[in-house]
Design a protein around this nucleic acid. Structure first.
Length: 351
DNA sequence: TCTGGGGTCCTAGGACCC
DNA sequence: TCTGGGGTCCTAGGACCC
C-alpha cells in the first residue's frame, strides 16, 4: 500500500491564497500574534531552516526568525483543502483510502508497479490542488508510513521486509511510528537503542516493562510488521474534547468554575450534534508550572445537561483553591457499540 | 522558552461482587 | 488468624500521533 503525506501542508495552503509568500519563512500558529501564549502549528521549510518546528511556543519561534510571516490558524481553509485531496485519492483506480489526518492517508492498491502508481497520485493531487505530496510504499502500514519520511519532499520511497533492516536497523527506536521519547528511554534501560535491537528481542521480554499488549506490539514495530490492510470504514469519534489556553494561569476558584462552565457548554454542543449518549467525562488540569492531572467521572447513559454540568462541577471541586492552574480541557466520551472499537493500531488521528 | 487543540489506546490499582 | 480466585467497573494517569 501507499502512504501519502502532503508537504508542509498548512504553510502550502497559505501560500496558495497568498502567492507572494512563496519562498518566505512562514509560521502558522494560534491567532498569529507572537506576543500571546500559543504554539506553532506548522512552519514552512524556509522557517524550519532556522530551527522552528511544530509544538514550539510561538514566542520562541518568532524570536528565532525575525523576518517570519506569522499567520493565524484557519481550520476551515485546511479542512477544505484536505477534503479535495482525499477526494482525489479516492478517485484513483482501485484505491481504498484510510484518512489519518488533514494531510495524510493510506491508499490500498494492487499494482505491479507501485512507483508508477505513486507518481500518478502525486500528479493528480498536484493538478487538482496545486499541493505537493510525498509517497511511501510498503508491504505493511508501518513500513509505508515510515517510508514516506525518506521520500520528503515531493519524492517516493519504498520500504518492505526486504530492505527494512538495511534502512532502519541502525536508527534509534524513536524514529518508529508509535515510539516517542518516553518509550525509547525505557527501551534504552533494557539495553535496546536501535531498531535492529528491538527487532531481534523476544516480544515476551518486554511484557514486564510495557504490559501484555504494548510490549509485544513494540517488538513487532521494530520488525516493521503489523497490519497490511487499508481499512476505509468511516471513522467514528469516540469522544469530543475542548481545550483552552488562558493567557495567564487561573488561581481564583470562581474563575476556575466559570472556565469549567464555559468548556462544558462547548463540549456539550459538539456532543449534541453527534446524538449519542455521553458515558464519561474527563477534566484535564495542569497545575503550574507543569504537572498535568486528569479527573474522570463515569456517567450513566443518559443525556441530561444539568446532570452533566453538575458532575463536571464535582470534578472541578477537586481543584485546590488558590493553587495556580492552567485548565487544559474537558473531554466527553460517548457510547459506542463494542464492535466499533479497533484495538491497538498506531494512532488513527482525529481530524 | 515554556509548552495548542484535537484525537487514539493502554495500564495499574482499588472497589465491589459472587 | 489469615485472607480463595475470578470477574467487572471505575478512576487516575501515561504515552503517542497530527
Amino acid at each position: 500500500m501507499l502512504h501519502v503525506d502532503l508537504d508542509q501542508f498548512i504553510a502550502a495552503v497559505e501560500v496558495l491564497r497568498r502567492p507572494e509568500l512563496a519562498g518566505k519563512p512562514i509560521i502558522v500558529g494560534g491567532r498569529g500574534d507572537p506576543t500571546e501564549r500559543a504554539v506553532v502549528s506548522t512552519a514552512s521549510y524556509e522557517a524550519r531552516a532556522f530551527g522552528v518546528g511544530s509544538g514550539m511556543p510561538l514566542r520562541v519561534a518568532a524570536r528565532k526568525v525575525p523576518d517570519a510571516v506569522i499567520l493565524p490558524v484557519d481550520f476551515e481553509a485546511y479542512l477544505a483543502a484536505s477534503e479535495t485531496v482525499m477526494a482525489t485519492l479516492r478517485a484513483q483506480p482501485g484505491a481504498t483510502v484510510q484518512v489519518l489526518g488533514w494531510d495524510e492517508a493510506f491508499v490500498g492498491i494492487e499494482s505491479e508497479d507501485p512507483e508508477t502508481y505513486a507518481r500518478q497520485v502525486q500528479a493528480a493531487v498536484l493538478e487538482r490542488t496545486q499541493l505537493h505530496c510525498s509517497v511511501g510504499i510498503g508491504d505493511t502500514l508501518v513500513r509505508a508510513k515510515v517510508a514516506t519520511g525518506f521520500g520528503k519532499p515531493a519524492g517516493i520511497f519504498r520500504l518492505t521486509a526486504a530492505n527494512w533492516l538495511d534502512v532502519m536497523g541502525g536508527r534509534p527506536t524513536k524514529e518508529l511510528w508509535g515510539v516517542g521519547s518516553r518509550v525509547s528511554a525505557r527501551l534504552a534501560k533494557l539495553g535496546i537503542t536501535t531498531v535492529a535491537e528491538l527487532a531481534a528481542c523476544d516480544p515476551r521480554s518486554l511484557v514486564p516493562e510495557f504490559g501484555p499488549r504494548m510490549g509485544p506490539w513494540y517488538a513487532q514495530l521494530g520488525r516493521g510488521d503489523g497490519a497490511s490492510v487499508v481499512d476505509d470504514t468511516p471513522w467514528v469519534a469516540r469522544g469530543h474534547s475542548r481545550e483552552t489556553t488562558f493567557q495567564r494561569d487561573l488561581s481564583d476558584p470562581a474563575e476556575v468554575e466559570d472556565a469549567v462552565r464555559g468548556l462544558t457548554a462547548q463540549v456539550l454542543e459538539d456532543v449534541v450534534a453527534e446524538g449519542r449518549p455521553v458515558i464519561g467525562l474527563t477534566l484535564k488540569i495542569r497545575y503550574a508550572p507543569f504537572l498535568t492531572t486528569t479527573h474522570a467521572k463515569k456517567i450513566p447513559e443518559t443525556f441530561d445537561r444539568n446532570e452533566i454540568l453538575e458532575r463536571v462541577l464535582d470534578l472541578a471541586a477537586v481543584i485546590e483553591a488558590g493553587r495556580p492552574i492552567r485548565l487544559l480541557g474537558l473531554r466527553a466520551e460517548m457510547a459506542m457499540p463494542d464492535d466499533a472499537r479497533k484495538g491497538h493500531t498506531p494512532t488513527r488521528g482525529g481530524w
